[in-house]
């Protein structure tokens, strides 16, 4: 027996045909999928990188201002908070970098199949982890 609430779901298309209204997915009840998760993480890392640009500008302005200002900026980056921010920044950077390449491949018409897109999502996550570790090994080796 059809649910009585279905009556509320009737809508009219612009050509006049009666149809069942489509429901937009609500995040609270929507099962996380590889496609939606990788997409929202791409946006989140993009926003994080935008904020991170402030740190890059500070670093450049400090370098242009003289040794003292540069030492202050470098001191902040080397502090516990600075290092946590830098770690988040490297993670975000490589995720956005590799997932961006994934997007460019989609734009060229490659990798739309569900199986392929799941595989490329795994590659993105793995490459992000590898590049983040490589960067921190190099960075710490040069720094310490």
């Amino acid at each position: 027996m059809p649910d009585v609430r279905d009556a509320l779901m009737i809508g009219k298309r612009s050509d006049g045909k009666l149809v069942r209204r489509p429901l937009s997915p609500h995040l609270q009840v929507y099962k996380p999928q590889v496609s939606s998760s990788t997409s929202i993480i791409n946006r989140m890392t993009g926003i994080a990188l935008s904020v991170g640009l402030i740190l890059m500008v500070w670093w450049l302005v400090a370098a242009a201002s003289g040794p003292k200002s540069f030492a202050v900026a470098q001191g902040f980056i080397g502090s516990p908070i600075g290092l946590i921010l830098m770690f988040g920044w490297t993670l975000s950077l490589w995720y956005h970098f590799f997932n961006g390449i994934r997007h460019l491949l989609w734009d060229m018409g490659w990798g739309f199949e569900i199986k392929t897109s799941h595989q490329t999502a795994l590659v993105v996550v793995a490459a992000t982890a590898v590049m983040t570790v490589i960067c921190w090994i190099i960075g710490l080796a040069v720094w310490l």
């Binding site: 003289g66 961006g100 960067c135 190099i138 720094w143």
Partner: peptide, 19 residues
């Protein structure tokens, strides 16, 4: 893509260096 790779590894090679 190339600019980021160049920048990140250039800066990393100077981590902790003076101004």
């Amino acid at each position: 893509i190339p600019l980021t790779l160049w920048f990140v590894f250039s800066v990393l090679s100077m981590a902790g260096h003076p101004q």
